Amino acid sequence: MSSSTNQPEFFAPWHVHLGDGEISPRRLHLLQAIEATGSVSQAAKQVDMTYKAAWDAVEIMNNLAGEPLVNRQHGGKGGGGATLTQTGLQIVTMHERLSAMQTMWMASLENTDADILPLMRRIKMQTSARNSFYGTVETVKTGEVNAEVTLKLQGDDRIVATVTADSVTRMGLKPGVTAWALVKASWVVLAKQQAKGLISARNFLCGQVSRITEGPVNVEVVVELKGGNTLSSIITHSALEELKLAEGEPICALIKASHVLIGVDE
């Protein structure tokens, strides 16, 4: 089942394809649970996710949908409320309707001798990169060997990537084309705003610390950018102490253009 270009496209078993971001059935169930409980921690328990995995899923869904699906209210450790935005509610409502229709359709086949009907499946993009964004190519500056591609994300955030001139031609990169930007968390360097004039990284994206998860070796810091996107960075415990980071503190993310991978849907 599909609709117009600006509307979600659903597949059975139901995935929602909104813009160029896909929400899996498990994440759809997470959205349902958030709506029912008003809490990410309680929703995580309902769908058998860890609290961290649930927040990771929320941040990815907000990024890939091109607009927030979940409004967050930060609380203490393991706490904080959450509500769905209007778009999030619409997706949950449509998912519930389609699931009911699918149940009825399957029930109608129980007494027939028909072979199992093939269902349309969409191949999902899977990547180990912690940070996944989608946006629209704004500019392409081509040189003899490499090209600089600027991708406009939601909320006027922008990310710049350096790719080969051959990649520009092969992927059809030009202004207006929708593309993916992938960045490994270990490639994201954190710095204070005043360091901007002292670094050579092409991307200098500022926002505030949204979440800090300390592990036995490293620390994951999630930065909420001014445009609403989130970035995850892996740093050391000593770096966390030196930067004096805490939730709500302003911080900037530095990413070399050569560390941004660009992809497009076929």
Rank of each mutant, 00 (worst) to 15 (best):
A147C: 08
E148Q: 14
E148R: 09
V149W: 05
T150G: 01
T150K: 06
K152T: 06
Q154S: 07
D157P: 04
R158I: 11
I159Q: 05
V160K: 10
A161G: 03
T162C: 09
V163A: 02
D166F: 07
D166P: 00
S167A: 12
V168L: 09
V168C: 04
R170D: 14
R170I: 06
M171E: 09
G172V: 04
G172C: 06
L173E: 05
L173C: 05
K174E: 15
G176S: 12
V177Q: 11
T178N: 13
A179P: 09
W180Y: 14
W180P: 00
L182T: 04
V183P: 05
V183S: 04
K184R: 13
K184L: 08
K184D: 07
A185I: 09
L190Q: 07
L190W: 07
L190H: 03
A191P: 05
Q193Y: 07
Q194D: 15
Q194S: 15
A195T: 07
K196P: 00
G197L: 07
L198N: 08
R202S: 10
N203K: 06
F204K: 08
C206T: 15
G207S: 11
G207D: 09
Q208Y: 03
S210Q: 12
R211G: 00
I212T: 07
I212V: 14
G215D: 07
G215L: 08
P216M: 06
V217G: 01
N218M: 13
N218D: 13
V223M: 04
G227Q: 05
N229K: 03
N229D: 10
T230I: 00
L231S: 02
L231V: 01
L231G: 01
